[in-house]
């Protein structure tokens, strides 16, 4: 015998210190924020409260992007193209959408962050990353 059951539960997640700063900068300044660990000499994207490698707290917030580099990508049917992108100035990549049109993008190509007009302090305040055409447009 098979039984199908649904569950429906609302959750409310706190972004915390660095997460809030990242989301607020998206909302208010159309700006990507990373965190710089001066010990490891690495800039992490997105911003975070402590260095994942050395554990150091009190990292410096730095502006990253708006340009970015494509690291890897995949097509999710009906959902779009998802990509790992490394914002300029950052040493790590973050996951977001790649905006079309897309014609066999190669890792390393140049991208540009695209913000939505309506922003609420949410990761989707970023609409995605668009491919920068070779003529610079």
């Amino acid at each position: 015998m098979i039984r199908e059951e649904a569950i429906k539960i609302p959750f409310q997640y706190a972004a915390g210190t660095a997460g809030s700063e990242f989301l607020i900068n998206l909302r208010d300044h159309r700006q990507l924020t990373g965190s710089r660990c001066s010990d490891c000499e690495r800039t992490l994207a997105p911003a975070r409260a402590y260095c994942p490698d050395c554990g150091r707290e009190g990292l410096h917030s730095v502006n990253i992007g708006p340009g970015a580099e494509l690291v890897s990508w995949t097509i999710v049917p009906d959902k779009g193209v998802f990509a790992l992108v490394r914002p300029d100035g950052a040493d790590t990549a973050m996951l977001h959408k790649l905006l079309g049109p897309i014609d066999d993008p190669q890792p390393g190509i140049r991208l540009q962050v695209v913000f939505r007009e309506e922003r609420s302090g949410h990761i989707n305040d970023i609409e995605g990353f668009a491919i920068v055409q070779e003529n610079g447009e």
């Binding site: 059951e5 539960i9 409310q12 997640y13 706190a14 972004a15 809030s20 302090g121």
Partner: peptide
């Protein structure tokens, strides 16, 4: 501080 609502709907 920012807090994000997400509803889980799973079957």
């Amino acid at each position: 501080r920012v807090s994000v609502p997400i509803e889980m709907v799973q079957s």
